[in-house]
């Protein structure tokens, strides 16, 4: 049995705190989210996020920590 999730495309999105997630490609993007550019099957999107989301602290926390 093939997981239907592997047949449809997802896109990689991120919010203002630079937290990444995935969204079905045909969906309207909710307010406050932007596309990262990567598009593909679910697992490929998640693997992509594993590579690019290297600091998981919210952006505001990162900025404050680095400011100190």
């Amino acid at each position: 049995m093939v997981d239907i999730g592997e047949k449809v495309d997802y896109i990689v999105v991120l919010n203002g705190e630079e937290q990444y997630s995935i969204l079905l490609a045909d969906r309207e993007i909710p307010a406050g989210w932007t596309t990262e550019g990567f598009r593909g099957p679910r697992q490929e999107c998640l693997d992509h996020i594993d590579r690019i989301w290297t600091d998981m602290r919210p952006l505001s926390v990162r900025r404050r920590m680095e400011g100190n």
């Binding site: 990689v12 999105v13 919010n15 203002g16 705190e17 937290q19 990444y20 997630s21 995935i22 969204l23 969906r27 309207e28 993007i29 909710p30 307010a31 406050g32 989210w33 679910r42 999107c45 998640l46 693997d47 996020i49 594993d50 690019i52 989301w53 290297t54 998981m56 602290r57 919210p58």
Partner: peptide
């Protein structure tokens, strides 16, 4: 915030909230 050191697993379970009033939730 998500799962420590597991960005992919975090992105899989913590998804954009289309019903929220605050943007980016």
């Amino acid at each position: 915030h998500g799962y420590l050191g597991q960005p992919g697993a975090t992105a899989d379970r913590f998804v954009p909230d289309p019903f929220a009033s605050e943007p980016g939730a």
